[in-house]
Design a protein around this nucleic acid. Sequence first.
DNA 1: CGCACCCCCTGCCGGC
DNA 2: TGCCGGCAGGGGGTGC
Length: 270
Amino acid sequence: MPELPEVETIARGLAPHLVGRRVAAVEVRERRLRERVEAGFAAALTGRCITALARAGKTLVASLDDGRSWLVHLGMTGRLTLHDGPTAPRPHDHVQVVFDDGRRLVYNDVRRFGRLLIVAPEALAAAVGCGLEPLGPEARPDVLAGRARRRRLSIKAFLMDQRLVLGIGNIYASEILFHAGVRPRRQAGSLTRGEWGRIVAGIRAVLEDAIACGGSSISDYRDGFERFGSYQLRHRVYDRAGDPCLACGARIRSAVIAGRSSYYCPACQR
DNA sequence: CGCACCCCCTGCCGGC
DNA sequence: TGCCGGCAGGGGGTGC
């Protein structure tokens, strides 16, 4: 579910409410997430003050006043919701963090593919991943082309590989490649300078537009206050197989690439 | 090296 | 109406 725009939306929305708050209590109702929530998780978080809340790739990073970080990866169906006061537990509410102002942050995850962990400063980079931030200053055509040199993997798999680029998942990879006019199956190492320029422009345009829309709410995604995003209304190709291309009218095609459903316009993308 | 295929887990949707 | 297979935004492992 949540790719960079969704996680960014959650971080921006929750930060003003959580930064400066101290954790009064932590309740773990279900430890069996993608990895087991560690026995020391609640103790490590309890009593800590949150000094910053940001996004790194698809991971939410809450900085703590002891120098460590609380990481939340939402997997496919994870949700973080801030409630003003006590609430009756809902199905799949796995962890609840109570703050000193009485508000509660609830982690809900139907499929339990998410992760919650506390990491020391030296372990933060490895936990988040070594790909480059697609909206950061290092996301330039020459840098991406360098990482793709002599690589034969598809450009779509390249964009989605978190060791290469952070934050881009299955929805935005298709949308970015449509914006760039590049077919998803093209080998990453074969792209021209001009194509890399269009891909970098597509990354910025699509991700920034999606952030401005509060992300894409396909089925599960909501922000930290259970609000819907609206970028799903602006998808040009994702989940539109058989529908007319909004630019040229050709029928959008779907194909499985590196195991994931992919969507593209056979006329606009080459 | 790249990818097909398996797993993790639950829910929903379409076809029969 | 009900059951069943397929598929879903994530990632990780194996083996060809």
